[in-house]
Design a protein around this nucleic acid. Structure first.
Lengths: 149, 149
DNA sequence: AAAATTCCAAGTAATTTACTAGGAATTAAA
DNA sequence: TTTAATTCCTAGTAAATTACTTGGAATTTT
């Protein structure tokens, strides 16, 4: 029941991007360096985010990525990880009932978990993390490094 | 972000056990047969539950397991899966802060998810699933098989 | 033309999961 | 007291997934 590095690194990368893209697009290499993630692996993560419409890219020299902060953490994590359901049950994704559906009671457990996770991440915006992050940084006397958990 | 078969099979097994242990201990072989899980794999799952004090065993012929229904689904799932935190961050488990703790903002996300999952499963009791299960079975005209999702 | 970048597909190494195998210990029943 | 039925324990293995790396094509600015 763990997020993979896709979700962990990917969210770190998006937050790093949001914190550094005030004026212009940010190159992946700079995010990779700050966050100690290999460029080539980050490429795969950001590709998921781009295909989901979460970040926008510009190609070529001086290119890079930008992100709109008014997006939920849930949308980011689902783009990176796939759905956040604890089991792959079609009913949790709005699909048809499984053959044991009428007697299946454990699915109430899975739905309960699923709903709580999705609610938790859908009611938190990237902009809130950005704000929190700036406050934390302002509180420290020195400029700390940028590494995020 | 998926539960493993430990959690899924294990919870099915516990519920099956609760539904069949009214008068006497239930042998693992009968649970395994009803739930189509191999006995030897089930042994490993039920060992975790026994060590966590969730089921009680009696050895020897006519032996088997019993379970007290007044236990939360959270206790069952944590016994099977380990903690249900989305990342292994010591602060989520009540341990010391990590070195990046003072600037780590993503940990708020992990804590939010962690809290919501644990709350969801800790406020649901095995007895409630048992009750629901009996109602579902009573509603069907025929006795259906016992397979759970 | 050169440099800096995103974009893409395929391969591989490491880790974790999901089991299986074999047998010892315990208890009830014949 | 033997036999059968069961839990208990350890170690091994096969399959799947994750976490990357490699190599290069396409695009854009300088």
């Amino acid at each position: 029941m763990k997020l993979s590095t896709k979700g962990r690194y990917g969210l770190r990368a998006v937050l790093d991007l949001a914190l550094h893209s005030e004026t212009e697009a940010v190159a992946l290499s700079s995010i990779a360096e700050r966050q100690s993630i290999s460029i080539s692996y980050l490429e795969q993560l950001i590709a998921k985010l781009r295909k989901a419409g979460i970040v926008e890219s510009t190609r070529g020299a001086r290119g890079g990525y930008v992100v709109d902060e008014e997006i939920s953490i849930g949308d980011i994590l689902r783009a990176l990880e796939g759905n956040l359901n604890p089991v792959d049950c079609s009913e949790l994704s709005g699909g048809p009932s499984c053959h044991a559906s009428d007697i299946c009671v454990t699915k109430y457990v899975w739905k309960r978990i699923s709903d709580s996770i999705n609610n938790a991440v859908d009611t938190l915006m990237l902009s809130e993390l950005v704000k929190e992050s700036r406050e934390v940084q302002a509180a420290g006397q020195e400029k700390k490094n940028d590494i995020l958990c």
